[in-house]
C-alpha cells in the first residue's frame, strides 16, 4: 500500500528563506514528529501539504494521491489542527460545527459530542470567548470527528496544560491503534515526542537534517563529554557540534559506534535528548 504521506524533493522559495528539497515518508500506523527551531520551515511544509501554499517543485502524495490533483478527496480524509485559531470567532461552537460538519463525507456527530464532553467545551459559547487551550481542544474535536485517516497538526500541544496535553497524546496513541491511520505533527515540546512518536523528522533552515525512526536516533547519536586534553582535530571531526569550557568539552556525535572503537578512554557517553540534538545542530549552523 502507498505511504500515507510522501514528500519528495519539495521546494518553496520565499524572499530570504527557502525550503530546499524536503523529502520524507510516513507509513500507515505510525506517528511522525516534526521538529526544528523557530523559522525552520515546519509551518511552511505543513501549509504546502495542505495546498495553502503553492510549491515551486517536488511532489507531495497523501494516501498515494497527488495533493493538488485530488485535493478535495484528500481533505475529506485529513484532520488538521493549526497553531493558531482559524475558526470564526463570532460563531458559537455549535454553529461552527453546523457549518463544517456537512462538508465532510464521514462526519460523526456522536464522536464530536463525546469530544465536547471530554474536553468540557460549552456548545453555546462563542469561539472568541474560549481560552486558548479550549480553542485548541475545539480544533482537535473537529479534526477527530470525521474519521480522518491522517492527522496533520502544527503545534497542537502548544497552549495546552500538562493534563490535556497528556490526554491528547493518549488520544493520538489510540488513533494509531488503527493501523490504517497516521499522525504527522510539529512541536517544540520534545518530551511529547519521547512519549509517542515513532519517527522524527528534523528540519533546520529549510533542510531536512534527518527523518528516521526515533529509536535509530538514540541508537546512533550520543552526547560525549571529556577532558579538554583529548579534544584534537581527529576527534573533532566526529562531532556535529561541541561546547567547550576551561575544563572540558561536551558535544554531539552522529555515530557513537565509530567513536567507541577509537576513543574508549577518558570520555563519557550519554544518551542525548531531542533537545540536545536540536541545540547542537542549530548551533553548528550559526557558527559556520
Amino acid at each position: 500500500m502507498a505511504p500515507i504521506l510522501e514528500v519528495k524533493g519539495l521546494r518553496k522559495e520565499f524572499k530570504g528563506f527557502a525550503l530546499k528539497n524536503i523529502s520524507f515518508t510516513l507509513e500507515r500506523g505510525y506517528i511522525m514528529g516534526f521538529i526544528g527551531p523557530n523559522g525552520a520551515g515546519k509551518s511552511t511544509t505543513i501549509k504546502l501539504i495542505m495546498n495553502l501554499l503553492k510549491r515551486d517543485g517536488g511532489e507531495i502524495k497523501v494516501f498515494g494521491l497527488d495533493n493538488i490533483k485530488h485535493e478535495k478527496e484528500i481533505k475529506n480524509r485529513i484532520g488538521f489542527v493549526f497553531d493558531e485559531n482559524y475558526f470564526y470567532e463570532e460563531l458559537t461552537v455549535a454553529e461552527m460545527k453546523r457549518v463544517i460538519a456537512p462538508l465532510y463525507k464521514n462526519w460523526d456527530d456522536g464522536a464530536f459530542n463525546r469530544y465536547l464532553k471530554k474536553f468540557s467545551l460549552p456548545p453555546d459559547k462563542k469561539i472568541k470567548e474560549l481560552s486558548k487551550g479550549m480553542k485548541m481542544k475545539f480544533s482537535l474535536a473537529v479534526a477527530l470527528s470525521h474519521n480522518a485517516e491522517l492527522l496533520i497538526m502544527d503545534e497542537p500541544t502548544s497552549g495546552l496544560d500538562p493534563i490535556i496535553r497528556s490526554e491528547l497524546l493518549d488520544i493520538l496513541t489510540s488513533v494509531i491503534q488503527d493501523e490504517n491511520k497516521g499522525v504527522f505533527f510539529s512541536t517544540h515540546i520534545t518530551s511529547d515526542l519521547d512519549k509517542i512518536a515513532d519517527y522524527i523528522t528534523f528540519i533546520n533552515d529549510g533542510r531536512i537534517i534527518f527523518s528516521c525512526p526515533k529509536d535509530d536516533i538514540f541508537e546512533k547519536y550520543a552526547l560525549v563529554r571529556g577532558p579538554k586534553e583529548i579534544l584534537n582535530a581527529g576527534l573533532r571531526q566526529y562531532f556535529v557540534g561541541i561546547k567547550e569550557n576551561r575544563f572540558g568539552f561536551e558535544g554531539l556525535v552522529k555515530d557513537k559506534h565509530q567513536l567507541n572503537k577509537m576513543f574508549k578512554d577518558g570520555i563519557v557517553i550519554d544518551k542525548p535528548s531531542l533537545d540536545d540534538i536540536m541545540l547542537y545542530f542549530t548551533r553548528r549552523v550559526q557558527n559556520v
Binding site: L52, K75, E84, Y86, L103, Y104
Partner: peptide
C-alpha cells in the same frame, strides 16, 4: 470583512472544499 478578520481562507481551504 469577517472572513478577513478570521483569516478564513486558511480554514476554508483546509476543509474539503474546492
Amino acid at each position: 470583512a469577517y472572513d478577513d478578520k478570521n483569516k478564513a481562507d486558511i480554514l476554508l481551504n483546509s476543509l474539503p472544499l474546492g
